[in-house]
Design a protein around this nucleic acid. Sequence first.
DNA 1: AAAAATAATAAACAGTGTTCATTTTAATAA
DNA 2: TTATTAAAATGAACACTGTTTATTATTTTT
Lengths: 203, 203
Amino acid sequence: MGLKERKERDRQEMKETILQSAHQLFVDKGFDDVSIRNIAEAIEYSPATIYLYFKDKNEIFYALHGEAFKKFNEFLAPLATVKDPFKRLIKMGELYMEFTFKFPKYYDIMFIMQAPMDCDVNSKEWKEGESAHSQLENVVNECQLQGYFKGKEYKTLSFLIWSTMHGMCSLALRDRLKIYEEQERSKMIDKSFKMFKQILSEL
Amino acid sequence: MGLKERKERDRQEMKETILQSAHQLFVDKGFDDVSIRNIAEAIEYSPATIYLYFKDKNEIFYALHGEAFKKFNEFLAPLATVKDPFKRLIKMGELYMEFTFKFPKYYDIMFIMQAPMDCDVNSKEWKEGESAHSQLENVVNECQLQGYFKGKEYKTLSFLIWSTMHGMCSLALRDRLKIYEEQERSKMIDKSFKMFKQILSEL
DNA sequence: AAAAATAATAAACAGTGTTCATTTTAATAA
DNA sequence: TTATTAAAATGAACACTGTTTATTATTTTT
């Protein structure tokens, strides 16, 4: 009687196949430059078949969005070994930045791209994203227990820290540093990040 | 003998007409959702005509990009009346934020959208953008002369300040604050901006 | 083996940016 | 004023896009 189950398994496998192809193309070219037809061609199915497994391109967006956050959370795994909360916060920033420039297309989909309105706040993809964020809030909170960031609301400060990191990363990714000389440019991110860390340590 | 000149004037007028239509549509719908055909229809010309005045859609992007920065610089005009450099810096941040949420489509094109690689660094559109940025660096520099931000490179700090403002604004514009409760969300930007101003004052 | 259910697809629709041969309009010369 | 030349505008096409639907092929069930 394992028929229904096998059917369901096949279905999940097909979804997985589609997503793997989408993933591959997407990492190379970015979401907007990958068409349904591209994905279909890669898996040697017709474009219409994609629509039997995903409602529309947005649904693929969300799947990749979730995948990106999962990858991001894995990327943050080394944090577990850092006991001191402030050091962990700093390390977190460093990993954030490393991830950004190592997987720019993922960063794009995670934080920059116009995300479709209708997202399911209860999906496991969403939880994956929430996890990363609460990890930040937790470490900031822990810092406060150790005497850092006195008199500052940890949630607000967390958002401010995230904003700063995101600002630097997204301006770089979206080529808004051309106001700086070629040489200056590459070091601007490093220098400002260094300054940011210093400011945090004196807060 | 003013024939060549009139021709050139007509040409500029037509470019202006196209740009005005593009502008209007764009402010409503955003760049990606405005097609060449939309613009053509609005000015009652054929789509092909647009290409007699603009090389491609990117060239229209740049024109609007320049326009946005011009508008932004005008928006910053009130700064001239603020003598104290630190107060001026704060006011600049407030205007930056106000501009962002008043003209989100412009902000998008200025700082978020993937800008085409081939931009002319010597164009007047570009200078307009540079002006806003050097205004920031100048005011930060002036702050230092008054004793603020001791021991910090003003250019680096300027970028860090910009990054923070951009981070908050762009995360909000791109709907990345859904991790916060509906009620909390609307106040998060205000609270973090307030905290940022406080941090700056103690730097 | 026939009937019912499922899966895959070809073809079409309405849209996109862009190009080019053709036609219309305007300026010049006879 | 008319014929010729130069400029401006366009219709139609190309190669794409996301998406839908009627049709065909494949399984599963009777």
